[in-house]
Write a protein that binds this DNA or RNA. Structure first.
Lengths: 337, 337
DNA sequence: TTGAAAGCGATACCAT
DNA sequence: ATGGTATCGCTTTCAA
């Protein structure tokens, strides 16, 4: 590999000058810069990030911790982060802290804490107290997107409000028999998000004096297929059927819509469905949902951290990302009997 | 940040010994090792990867170039890669070379070529000649998953065979009016994959003496929603309707199944649908498909590169990943009229 | 088994 | 505007 010395030798200037010239610093004469650049190109020289990282203390890398990479929300946030990083010439180190918790400690020590990154974004992760301390002691800017984590600032929508608004929408349409499709997430992720959304559902039901039926509290585990199965089972039960379902995510809501189709139950006339997210597929299914914009959340998070790395004062407080009810065609008043 | 010197000082040994002790090298007495480790833990010392990377020339990082992170195939490969890397204490640098081609050169020079990674995996990417040369001149092991790239070894299924097998399955069932749902991929990705699969479709149609109708060659752009719309349009056209559809991916195939439902056309009795992939959702839709295992492909790729980094001889040739027809309930003989 | 010291490849300060 | 050189934090001979 050609090093800076090779370029310096070939050009007949010092390595200091080569370094300055290539980085576009001010105090280099134009002719020199051109000569250096020409030689560097000719030799195919590219500065080693490892070396300059050691010298400058900056890695030009941002770490992103995700619980999984197979969910729309995460990948969309990731793309938002990515686009900002690329514009700033930053790289993205992906830490996929999947469900198996055994790896977590290793990843923490061997990777995250090894000064490989200048800043860190965590998506919907839960952290143990020691983990959090270690993160903070690293001393570089960090941020959580999705679920709030005690002691760390975060970016996220009003989860409880989302659950409440979705439910209120159905209540306003006249529904009283409203099921909830929630369900815990995988291990290691932030369980608070689904719980909080469900809390919002309970809020709305309570305020309206409507009963929350235990047998109508379903778990779709954030999966379309599982939700489809679970809701199919619900719809086929003998006895009273709910006229509406509040789902904790669009993927689950779509599962519910498909389940209805499987059972010959028409949406929205016989069953209304609301989700949360505004997933890519939501429009195709006419899904009414609490829309949020994870791409924008990712962009915001990355920008904030980059600004702070650039010397801007860190904002201590969390940021509430916007979300709003988006009515499509999966919700309607219940049929009178 | 505590450095190795701090630990050395605190323990009363040399940095050399600290380094050896912490890495578990042989020539350190047990008492010393314990003392060092205790001190290191106490001080919260973690070796800087930047520094050790400079010293050893290894970054313990693998670069992964993806065209997008929002498609099942890519993320599944990614997870396969990830699990192998984690087991080997390697990190994953994600290069999301999305469609906008403007960034590519920058990413190449500022990131990929900057010796930040020990090896590189590219997913379904196309490379220009100069890009390829630069990659190879980097001198570290590289591999392509998905679409073959001239001059680089790759891991992937028999794409043409997949298209052929899918089509032959329908022909064997008695279908003759078979549409194709393909469509180019986004810019910068390997366009050869969809084209090659379609070639397989043409092969099968040709061998069976069946006509390939231009108006039945659809473009679903690898998107469920777009495929759903496009197929809906097809099914609503006046005149003869195909009795079967070969889709280039399961996501598109599912779009076709939903389109059929939208049009009141039942699958498989009035319309058979085959896909490629064995997507997570395929089973939920009873989708007949050419199954492949991207997770395993990712694992294999990562293992191969890791082995080579460990000194194993590099295998020059490409690897054909397995794929096979998986018959579910979305295909059946056509209805006689 | 342990330590001293020479790199690794850049950056940045201080001279010139 | 340019060059010399200490420095970043760790690894790795080579000696002891």
């Amino acid at each position: 590999m050609t090093s800076i010395d090779d370029v310096a030798r070939a050009t007949g200037v010092s390595t200091a000058t080569v370094s300055r010239a290539l980085r576009g610093l001010a105090n280099v004469s134009e002719p020199t810069r051109l000569r250096v650049q020409a030689k560097a190109d000719e030799l195919g020289y590219v500065a080693s990030l490892t070396a300059s990282g050691l010298a400058t203390g900056r890695t030009l890398t941002m770490g992103v911790v995700v619980p999984s990479v197979s969910r729309w929300f995460y990948t969309t946030v990731l793309e938002g982060i990515d686009v900002v990083l690329r514009a700033a010439n930053y790289d993205l180190m992906l830490y996929n802290l999947a469900s198996r918790s055994g790896d977590r400690e290793r990843v923490f020590h061997r990777s995250i804490l090894r000064k490989r990154t200048d800043a860190l974004i965590a998506l919907c992760m839960e952290f143990t107290e020691p983990e959090r301390e270690q993160l903070l002691s690293l001393g570089h800017p960090a941020l959580v997107i999705g679920g709030p984590v005690k002691g760390m600032r975060h970016i996220g929508i009003d989860e409880r409000g989302a659950g409440r608004t979705a439910t209120e929408h159905l209540i306003e349409l006249g529904h009283t028999a409203i099921a909830h499709l929630g369900g815990d997430d995988d291990e290691g992720m932030n369980r608070r998000v689904p719980l909080t959304r469900r809390l919002g559902y309970r809020d709305a039901m309570g305020s309206a004096g409507l009963p929350v039926r235990n047998e109508w509290m379903l778990s779709g585990r954030f999966s379309l297929a599982i939700s489809r199965a679970v809701v199919t089972e619900l719809l086929r039960r003998p006895g009273e059927r709910p006229t509406a379902i509040v789902a904790n995510s669009d993927e689950m809501a779509i599962g519910a819509i498909l389940a209805a189709a499987d059972c010959g139950i028409s949406v929205p006339s016989q069953l209304s469905v609301v989700g949360v997210d505004n997933h890519d597929l939501a429009v195709s299914f006419g899904l009414t949902t609490i829309a949020q914009d994870p791409y924008e959340q990712g962009r915001l998070a990355a920008s904030m951290l980059l600004d702070e790395l650039g010397g801007a004062p860190a904002r201590k407080s969390s940021v509430r990302a916007p979300s709003s009810l988006l009515v499509r065609t999966s919700t309607a008043p219940p049929v009178r009997r």
